[in-house]
């Protein structure tokens, strides 16, 4: 990696291999097009330079055949690139079932990662090899962009939203992590490293961190401390929905719309409850915006995701 003149980044994830391939294909095509144009410019320039004896008879000013043919060919080629790219994008941005879920919070100017077991790290991310890792990205202030060149993945980290991204590393080692969205003074140093480890090494690393409470357990405490459990529980007097198993279902709203309960939805419920109401319930859910920090929100969400999974969909 640290050669004197680096030409090519590491390729260390299954996503990266796919993107790398399309990049190489397009690079070859681009070079071919550019060289063809350069070659034509050069040969015409030499052959038809002023004073050369080449014949200029039967000059072509336009030929619709040629122009339409050329246009169609270009269009066809572009459509192939489009389909190739679009299908890969859908695959890249649609997280498959994850082996492990890690929460990442961007903050000026650091990356905080929280493992499900409660392990925390700053400007570093330890992950096991050959496992599908899903990242839930949140921002505490401005827009950042989470970028690991060796994995060819990137996603903006947007305040007020939760974004997800996934990768499956296939090489152990240490890789760069960067922010690619200008976020103020120290944007350039908002970087870190991703450490890909073998399964046993990773397990050892997790054990060495000395944590007592898992991420969801910390969320459960917040859930009680902030009074959520006062309404959202079996024996509550308030008519509020039980949250067991709501994650990953479709929720019907008072206004007739249906929303899919992913992380972003749960976040919305907590910090923006005025903007919608779950069908069949009174709109009494208090607004927690400003009371819970971005990583506390993630903990509560992790807790809600962790409780119950047996709930009939489409209630």
């Amino acid at each position: 990696m640290y050669r004197w003149i680096p030409f090519w980044p590491d390729t260390a994830a299954v996503n990266a291999i796919a993107v790398n391939n399309i990049y190489i294909a397009e690079l070859a095509l681009s070079s071919l097009i550019t060289l063809t144009v350069a070659f034509m410019l050069l040969t015409f320039s030499i052959r038809y330079r002023r004073g050369s004896t080449a014949s200029r008879a039967n000059l072509v000013q336009k030929t619709w055949h040629f122009e339409v043919g050329w246009t169609t060919a270009t269009l066809g080629l572009f459509l192939i690139l489009f389909v190739y790219g679009a299908s890969m994008y859908i695959w890249l941005y649609n997280p498959p079932p994850a082996d492990e879920e890690i929460y990442v919070v961007g903050k000026r100017w650091m990356w905080k990662a929280e493992h499900p077991g409660g392990q925390r790290e700053i400007d570093a991310l330890h992950v096991p090899i050959d496992k599908t890792i899903r990242l839930v990205l949140a921002s505490e202030d401005v827009i950042h962009s989470f970028f690991v060149p060796a994995f060819r993945i990137k996603h903006d980290v947007v305040p007020g939203a939760l974004e997800t991204i996934w990768f499956k590393a296939n090489k152990t080692g240490t890789f760069r992590l960067a922010c690619t969205q200008f976020c103020g003074l120290q944007h350039a140093t908002m970087a870190g490293e991703v450490v890909v480890m073998s399964g046993p090494d990773y397990a050892r690393w997790l054990g060495d961190q000395g944590v007592r409470e898992s991420f969801a357990e910390q969320g459960s405490e917040l859930f009680r401390a902030h009074g959520c459990s006062g309404c959202h529980s079996e024996n509550s007097t308030v008519h509020a929905p039980l949250l067991d198993g709501v994650y990953g279902t479709f929720v019907h709203m008072q206004d007739g719309s249906v929303r899919f309960a992913d992380e972003a939805y749960l976040r919305d419920c907590i910090v923006n409850p005025r903007s919608f109401t779950v069908a069949g319930y009174p709109p009494v859910m208090p607004d927690y915006a400003g009371q819970l920090g971005e990583d506390e929100l993630l903990k509560v969400i992790a807790y809600i995701k962790s409780i119950g999974s047996k709930r009939e969909t489409g209630r």
Partner: peptide, 12 residues
């Protein structure tokens, strides 16, 4: 314009 390539090199 090719989506996955843009994902990679956007902002670089």
């Amino acid at each position: 314009a090719t989506l996955p390539v843009d994902v990679d090199v956007h902002g670089t």
